[in-house]
């Protein structure tokens, strides 16, 4: 696969598109210090699919995710969440879009320290002023196994439990798409496996769309599809990856 003339990856014909980037470009700095963080990325994320984005540091994978999630602005090109073109939205509408249609799981510092686990889970809904769907809330809490921890503050939870709360929060508002930025980066392998398992189940059982940035081949193996970025460009795509196949590719890629 060449890096210059690859056709836009096409989503499986069966599903709708949850998010899409068209010729996304992001340039930092000017003149000599100019850096092309994204050098024209076009990609679709099918609804109900778990996608992992990989790539070395500085490849643009985080920038791509931030732009897709409405946290950062493109220099040119466009990004879409379902039918909405984010590049045309004002700051206020972007905020509402994040609140209502996007879920987040960050690597660390995911929770508001002054709120209990339950309040953290319902935070986006509370910010929107809407009532949580109790049945769905119970279901999510059960899925991530937090039942007896709901009234605890983040400082009283382990790192793994904190990430479970973060995943539950992302699921609670039934967003169009969840962006996870190295969600297991700070966890031991057992906790990591748990978190990734929950995310996998959310996709398989509830049809949730998830896009995860990671550099861990094991984490990537939970996904349906792996995208590899390098120097701001999409360089490879794998379906139904195993950790071995990812490791193998990353090895050749590293040379």
């Amino acid at each position: 696969m060449t890096t210059t003339s690859s056709p836009p990856p096409v989503a499986p014909a069966s599903g709708a598109v949850a998010a899409r980037a068209i010729d996304a470009r992001k340039v930092y700095g000017e003149g000599d210090t100019e850096v092309n963080a994204l050098a024209g990325v076009t990609v679709d994320f099918a609804a109900g699919q778990f996608t992992a984005i990989m790539g070395p540091s500085g490849s643009g994978k985080s920038t791509l995710m931030h732009c897709l999630a409405g946290l950062d602005e493109l220099t040119s090109g466009s990004v879409w969440i379902e039918g909405t073109n984010l590049t045309e939205l004002r700051e206020k509408d972007l905020t509402k879009l994040r609140r209502d249609r996007v879920g987040f799981v960050f690597q660390a510092f995911n929770l508001i320290p002054t709120l209990s686990a339950e309040e953290n889970i319902t935070l986006p809904l509370a910010l929107a002023g809407s009532e949580p769907d109790q049945a769905w809330f119970d279901e999510v809490v059960k899925t991530v196994g937090l039942g007896d921890r709901l009234t605890h503050r983040p400082s009283e939870l382990s790192g793994g439990q904190q990430q479970r709360v973060a995943v539950a929060r992302a699921l609670a508002s039934k967003p169009a798409i969840i962006f996870a930025d190295e969600p297991t980066g700070n966890l031991d392998s057992r906790s990591s496996a748990e978190i990734l398992g929950f995310m996998r189940r959310a996709v398989t059982e509830y049809g949730q769309t998830i896009v995860m940035v990671t550099h861990d081949p094991v984490a990537a193996s939970y996904a349906d599809r792996v995208l590899v970025l390098a120097d701001g460009k999409l360089v490879h795509e794998m379906f139904e990856p195993t950790s071995d196949s990812v490791v193998d590719f990353m090895k050749t890629f590293g040379d």
Binding site: V102, F109, L123
Partner: peptide, 13 residues
């Protein structure tokens, strides 16, 4: 950090 998180979660200005 916390304020950033809140804003990312969809808290308006």
């Amino acid at each position: 950090r916390e304020l950033g998180l809140l804003r990312a979660m969809g808290m308006t200005r």
